[in-house]
Amino acid sequence: MTPLLQLDSVNKAFGGLKVTQHLSFSVFPGEIAAIIGPNGAGKTTLFNQITGHLLPDSGRILFKGEDLVGLTTQAIVKKGLGRAFQVASIFPEETVLDNIRLAALANLDHTRRFWRPSAEHRQATEAAVAILASLGLEEQGGRLAFELSHGDQKLLDIGIALALQPTLLLLDEPTAGMSPEERQRTRRLIGEIRGEYDLTLVFIEHDMDMVFDIAHTVRVLQQGALLAEGSPAEIQSNEEVVKAYLGEEL
């Protein structure tokens, strides 16, 4: 099987600070891959390089066999790579429905249409309503996005990404700042939408329960370099990881 996402010796430094060091790994279709590591390990910076926000100094980032390095964010998104952010990236003054409808319209390439009201674009609206339902946000559709709770805003962010029909979804700390109940719900939802939308997931997470509960594979980053990779069980028994990272946590 060919990997969906393949990092090939990716390097990035900010001045003297090496944020990504010779990073190579592959994510296969259908996989749920977790990326863990202490704060400052370069996890979000890695996401930023994958999505074209930052340019790696060297190395290749292959997605479906094509190199993403040098492409704009827009081009990368159009290839089927979605992203939800650490701080929910939503359109605060629009309704929840319009947030996702906008993404659906963008996905259909309908955002140049300037005559029919967006509410009357059926295809996009139906797609948006379906996503709201899968996220359990259907009751909130008419509310303005900034009125939502923190947890719901993060779900909405995921919803916006879903509307673009990605094959690979990057989730940056999907449960950060959530209450235990919200975490439970989000963990369950992520599992559900992965099946429903046939997604491959790469997520950054600090909540180890979530990591070991839903991830198929785990990669541990330390100072921008890959410290270990393997199944959750392998990682849990990896001495280096236990020493460097989990030792402090457990």
Binding site: F91, E94, L102, A106, H110, P117, S118, A124
Partner: peptide, 13 residues
């Protein structure tokens, strides 16, 4: 019409 169309929505975005 433009303000409430998909184009208007992306402008607000």
């Amino acid at each position: 019409r433009m303000a409430y169309s998909p184009f208007g929505l992306i402008l607000r975005g």
